[in-house]
Design a protein around this nucleic acid. Structure first.
Lengths: 218, 218
DNA sequence: GTAGTGTTTTGAACACGTTCAAAAGCCGGG
DNA sequence: CCCGGCTTTTGAACGTGTTCAAAACACTAC
């Protein structure tokens, strides 16, 4: 009666994602997940060492969806502000169905040492994918920032993304309207900063920022 | 056998703070808190509707300690960078004993809708006190920023403070050395930005930032 | 086939946060 | 003194995430 390899694990993940969407994170019990997956509670813990760990699957999926949504929309836009706005709004759209659940998720992820933290080694691949999206946002844009700064810019834009996400998680307005407003206000600022980064007065500032990002990276 | 008014409540808070420091947040059970306070579990829940709520006391205390530590050290310094560095390092010093526990605390606080969130109404007083400290950091400094910006600057500096705290919570280096390094790198950038805010090229940028902060505030 | 070995699965048991109905204490008015 | 209504206190009970020893299974070697 053995099914495909890894099928137990998969069954558990899908059951969990279904239930998370249906009843939120807190409303979903491990017993319910195990039930729907057709296994015992203990078995679920054989594959995932905690309830928190079950959501890494969600995170990976979300990053992939964001990318899939954003990339096609980017073609034909060369203005950095436009491209940024597109990427950030794509996130909001992709993440919308999970808002309640995502709140809990990001709270968990904010916990230091938690493998779900965006800064943790375990999130390495997902983080790389996210940063990479912003690399593409930049490479398709008609911009010419200070070259030193340019190298760290994808990481910086991803940090901006994290900030927006943090706001979104707390945003209870309909269809995340306030977050979209925040995006509209933030994007021109960032775009202008990037453009101004070549100005002689601002060069030392750019250097300091570059140093800072390198420190943050370890 | 009644003791002073409010004494039950106080006993529970102190018991909780003691235990949090001794064994961390997760290591402290409500049963243990009740035991040490000399009351029943149910009674603890009569005063505090959840375990999370018990730490608001900690938060208030920390903000007060930070203020008490920072203010005296500020006298005699007129350079904005110096003053900022002093304020931020004072935080690190004040918070150091609670690092492990604080990690959990801020994770809880990051949860949307949680009364402990720094953006929630319940944290209003503590937030106001924190913002106020940065108002004093500014008012004692020899600076002359764009006047529009000046009005929102305390809030902005507090946001910087939150960013540093977020990093600190994840920082496992001895004596928070990496966070102190981050402070050393961040402070000159912020100070320079404030100084440059009068430059004509940067005026529109300043306006955008001011708009942004006003949006964030409501 | 059977014995042995590692992997997977089970479900009862545990510890915890939280709830709740009932008890105990308190206090003003008759 | 005691009645009635309040605040406070109790501890057993519930539902949850998690653990664990034991069972079931899969496979290899003989």
């Amino acid at each position: 009666m053995t099914t495909a390899p890894g099928s137990t694990r998969d069954a558990i993940v899908s059951a969990a994602l279904e239930l998370f969407r249906e009843r939120g994170f807190d409303g979903t019990t491990m017993r319910a997940v195990a039930d729907r997956a057709g296994v015992s509670v203990g078995n679920a813990y054989y594959y995932f060492s905690s309830k928190d760990e079950l959501v890494q699957g969600f995170y990976d999926q979300l990053v992939a969806e964001h990318r899939a949504l954003a990339l096609p929309e980017l073609t034909g836009h060369a203005d950095l502000a436009d491209r940024l706005r597109i990427a950030l709004n794509a996130w909001i759209t992709a993440a919308e169905p999970y808002r309640e659940f995502a709140g809990r998720f990001f709270a968990v992820a904010a916990q230091p040492g938690n493998p779900l933290s965006p800064f943790s080694p375990d999130s390495g691949p997902a983080r790389a994918a996210a940063v990479d999206l912003y690399r593409e946002v930049l490479s398709g844009a008609r911009v010419d920032p200070d070259p030193e700064l340019a190298r760290e810019l994808p990481e910086l834009l991803w940090l901006q993304h994290l900030g927006i996400v943090l706001f979104w998680v707390h945003d209870t307005s309909a269809d995340a309207a306030r977050t979209r407003l925040l995006v509209d206000r933030t994007v021109p600022i960032v775009a202008r900063l990037v453009r101004l980064s070549r100005l002689p007065v601002l060069r030392p500032l750019g250097r300091q920022v570059v140093d800072l990002v390198r420190l943050l990276k370890g």
